[in-house]
Amino acid sequence: MNRKKKRSFAGSRTEALVYGILSLVILLAVWHLVSLGGRIGKFFPSPFLVIRDFANAFVHAIGRNTMLEHIFFSLRRVLVGFGLGVVVGIPLGLVMACSKAGRAFFMPLFSIVRPIPGLAWIPLAILWFGLGEQSKYFLICMTALVGITMQTFFGALYADPVLIGAARMLGAGKFQLFVHIILPSAIPNIFAGLQGSFAGAWCAVIAAEMIRSDEGTGWIIFNGMNYANTAQVIVGMVAIGLVGLIASTLLKALERRLCAWNIQGK
């Protein structure tokens, strides 16, 4: 059944490609036409101008850095903050799932923090950590933490009791149960959490850079707005979109390798 589905998809691939290119061409054409129209055109640069500026940005600096450097700054912030979220969130989720005492202790705290959107931490982040890198790491970490913790928690909590029983019957001790059953059971959920949280973290870094920074993709947008340079704004948006797309593709590929056994990982 699986194979059939794949084949029919492959059959319509050319069709999908044609439609995809068509929609892109129409978008560019309409965009270009609108940009020609006098007053609107002032804040609506032609797509070709944007593409040119985007390519230029890799060679000539916007502000003090070239595009690759801006992306590097943003990515570094995301990776540090997101990494902190992973390092705290996964163990926290596992502790809450596996230990009754752990759940009783952390769950109330977590339930209070959970519904607070990550961006609501901006003022506290600034007051506690200033306007430098630390506040950005904190903000991104808080954004990513909730999703990662929740998904890890549910994944580990709902490990199949029949499988746990089977492993116990085969002689697995408590620690072995954790390593060989509970952890692998949670991995598909953990990956779902990582993917969702990465998107959140990438949002948070843009917000953080708009508040105060001298570089990064979020800064490109904000700086473009300050100078009424719409082309620069759109160049920044395109960069953000592309980096987000690449990152989520990489995470997907990693998931596919680690969860080859799982039907969701196909």
């Binding site: 199949d160 029949v162 499988l163 492993a167 692998p184 991995i187 969860c259 056994w261 799982n262």
Partner: peptide
């Protein structure tokens, strides 16, 4: 087991 209690991973 009645249902497959194999470890899927």
């Amino acid at each position: 087991y009645q249902t497959t209690a194999l470890f899927p991973w």
